[in-house]
Design a protein around this nucleic acid. Structure first.
Length: 354
DNA sequence: AACGCTTCCAACCGCCGGACC
DNA sequence: TGGTCCGGCGGTTGGAAGCGT
């Protein structure tokens, strides 16, 4: 397209930021919000490109950023989410409160990837280096598990995107209702909701029916007990059932999910099957699917948050206190159980959501 | 103390997709 | 409809810090 790069103007500074530059950037954003990043440097009196300012702000200067050592729970969450989502650091970051995608990416590249490799686990596929899935179940069930996992990951992916968008819109709406002197950027955002499903989303009542743009896709909110039924394509007996607590979120996520499915030709899905997908907090999910949690909860539960049993192998000490990964990793036995727990959760041949 | 190697992470780069005209 | 702008994302890199010899 031939457009000019944002940083190719002569005279723009590169390299490490000085405290003075940080101060200027902070002061400007606190007073005016960031507005257009491209226009910001000149307004703030900085000899930097807008991109550089944005990066500095999002990765370092934002007041609600958490820095320093990653906790055991955070490590586990990263590994599990990476197994499901791959190098989608921004998506992973949405599940690690106050961590930036850049920090997570760095941590993965410098610590976690190496640890997995050391154990003979391919950090890309999360399988044993031999190529065989870690575990001993038969191939058919493994393949089915992989397909299910893949679909859960796709759904989670779509959900994360939708949630992110809703969160941004919500923030913008909130900002728009404030006096103009208040910064537009969410520098004073409230603490994120503890639940992986956004707390800002209100429970929804009643039913809805809509048609997707695609001539071969339909989406119908059944309206009974907040369930949603998806027909992927005409003549396809496959039914996708969605359950959720917010019609906008479910609709948006469902659209994305269907597009993904259509683009990928329902790879891994079995025609005629009935699949159930959705957030795992609700009791209905446990009742209907017969598992204790959806993807996010599986992940968080696997992190040892208030869960035991299969999760005990996550390096939890006798008094219930989680050991830090750094300490665990150097110790033979506990290290082994710690990582085998991760593997068990990530590549189990019999995932709970089958 | 000096040197070389490794580790770590802040920052840059290039690409992509959505919005706008 | 196509071109451009802009923000965001993921991969990569440069250099400081740490470590071993």
């Amino acid at each position: 397209m031939g457009r000019s790069l944002c940083c190719d103007k002569v005279g723009l500074k590169k390299g490490p930021w000085t405290p003075e530059e940080d101060e200027k950037l902070l002061a400007h954003i606190e007073e005016h919000g960031h507005g257009s990043w491209r226009a910001l440097p000149s307004k703030a009196g900085l000899q930097r490109c807008g991109k550089s300012c944005r990066l500095r702000w999002t990765n370092y200067l934002q007041p609600d950023i958490k820095r320093g050592k990653f906790s055991l729970q955070e490590e586990q969450t990263i590994i599990q989410l990476h197994a499901l989502l791959g190098n989608r650091w921004s998506a992973i970051a949405t599940h690690l409160s106050r961590r930036t995608d850049n920090e997570i990416k760095n941590y993965w590249n410098t610590h976690l990837k190496k640890r997995l490799a050391k154990m003979g686990i391919d950090p890309v596929t999360h399988k044993a280096a031999s190529g065989a899935p870690v575990g001993t179940a038969d191939d058919v069930r493994s393949a089915k598990a992989a397909a299910s996992l893949s679909h859960m990951a796709q759904w989670e992916s779509a959900r994360l995107e939708a949630e992110g968008r809703l969160a941004r819109e919500s923030t913008m709406r909130a900002a728009a209702s404030r006096p103009t002197s208040v910064p537009l950027h969410p520098i004073n955002l409230p603490e994120p909701a503890a639940s992986p499903c956004l707390g800002l989303l209100q429970p929804w009542q009643g039913a809805a029916k809509l048609d997707l743009e695609s001539p071969t896709s339909t989406l119908t909110f059944i309206g009974n007990n907040n369930s949603v039924s998806l027909g992927i394509s005409e003549g396809d007996p496959t039914t996708w059932r969605l359950r959720g607590d917010d019609p906008e979120r479910e609709e948006d996520s469902a659209r994305r999910f269907l597009r993904q499915q259509q683009m990928q030709g329902l790879e891994g899905a079995e025609r005629g099957d009935e699949h159930i997908i959705g957030c795992g907090e609700e009791p209905w999910f446990q009742e209907t699917v017969g598992v204790g949690a959806g993807l996010t909860d599986v992940l968080l539960a696997g992190s040892g948050v208030g869960a035991h049993g299969a999760l005990e192998c996550w390096g939890e000490s006798g008094n219930g206190q989680a050991e830090h990964g750094g300490q665990v990793s150097g110790d033979g036995e506990s290290s082994s159980s710690y990582w085998s727990g991760i593997l068990g959760m990530v590549v189990s041949s019999e995932p709970p959501f089958l």
